[in-house]
């Protein structure tokens, strides 16, 4: 006992520094995790998690029988899958292309321009995109389209993927460029002496150098597969495309906060979080089995 007290006294200032952080994480991260209990209760906004009657798996049954939920889940998986296929490799390719530029000034100008959209919110970009792709005032007609892709159910998912790529591909290169910058120049020299051409240098020196970064980002990305990005969808979608664009995040928002069905929305949110966690753990396991370094 006195040993503990002594140790505590010796370290008291560190605990003082740590205290706000620990309070924060418990209050704003762990208490909401406890709040997940309302997915198993008949929760009303007038009650609390402590006095609401238990409902077992009732809300999960309702959820899995609701056609809206399946539509949202289907859209989430499809949109997320498209984004993974197209938007995950895009910054890798772009980083390799940027790295091949010999003219430093041109490279900096390109970087300055393509990083910018990352710093602008989806609300702002949304209104710009509405204007640019408006049938009346935008470039839609010039592109040979009769309707705006934002209003067209067949084109909307593609538009989501494309607009996200446009916004994030530049900024996405930053982490790969940093990894490439860490490559020892002697490796390139040695490969050149061995007669490697430019494409062989990319293939055998640059790519292996960023492989571990790619793996880490891929694992993290897999854990996010059911998170499409609330802002983008919420800003861009509209009644014409609800059927192809409603995703789990917008579903949870609508059911929970607009309709006030808190238990049902929490059940949907829990489903989303658990699937994400399982995918993350699974990918990490898979990656380690393949002999790469995982997250833990």
């Amino acid at each position: 006992m006195s040993q503990t007290m002594k140790s505590f006294h010796k370290h008291k200032y560190y605990y003082v520094l740590l205290l706000p952080g620990i309070i924060y994480f418990i209050l704003f991260k762990y208490i909401p995790m406890g709040g997940i209990a309302i997915a198993f209760q008949d929760f009303r906004i007038t009650g609390s998690v402590f006095n609401s009657p238990w409902a077992g798996l009732k809300w999960f049954n309702i959820l899995f029988e609701s056609p809206d939920f399946w539509v949202a889940l289907r859209n989430t998986v499809i949109i997320s899958f498209y984004k993974l296929i197209f938007n995950f490799p895009a910054p890798i390719i772009l980083a390799l292309l940027l790295n091949e530029l010999i003219n430093g000034a041109f490279k900096r100008i390109v970087q300055t321009i393509i990083y910018f959209p990352h710093f602008v919110s989806w609300v702002v970009l949304g209104s710009i995109l509405f204007s640019v792709f408006s049938v009346d005032t935008g470039v839609t007609k010039l592109l040979g389209l009769s309707t705006s892709p934002i209003m067209n159910p067949d084109a909307f998912r593609g538009f989501l993927v494309g607009s996200e790529m446009w916004k994030e591909v530049g900024w996405g290169t930053v982490i790969y460029l940093a990894a490439i910058a860490g490559v020892n120049p002697e490796q390139y020299e040695a490969a050149k002496i061995d007669g490697a051409n430019r494409f062989q240098l990319i293939r055998h020196v640059t790519l292996p150098a960023i492989a571990s970064t790619i793996v880490v980002l891929l694992i993290l990305r897999t854990g996010q597969i059911l998170n499409v990005g609330f802002d983008q969808i919420f800003i861009l979608y509209n009644p014409l495309v609800y059927n192809v664009a409603d995703v789990l995040e917008t579903y949870v928002y609508r059911v929970g906060l607009t309709m006030g069905r808190f238990s049902l929305a929490t059940a949907a949110g829990l489903f989303q979080a658990v699937v994400g966690l399982c995918l993350l753990v699974f990918t990490n396991w898979l990656v380690k089995r393949m002999g790469e370094r995982g997250l833990w």
């Binding site: 991260k29 709040g35 997940i36 829990l270």
Partner: peptide
């Protein structure tokens, strides 16, 4: 590293990166 309990508290922080209570419980809090 020598701070008693530091490992547990690090885990407490790191776990929030892979799991969260979600929109509704956070809203209610």
């Amino acid at each position: 590293r020598s701070l008693p309990g530091v490992k547990a508290m690090t885990l407490l922080v790191l776990f929030t990166m892979i799991f969260s209570g979600g929109m509704i419980p956070t809203y209610l809090l």
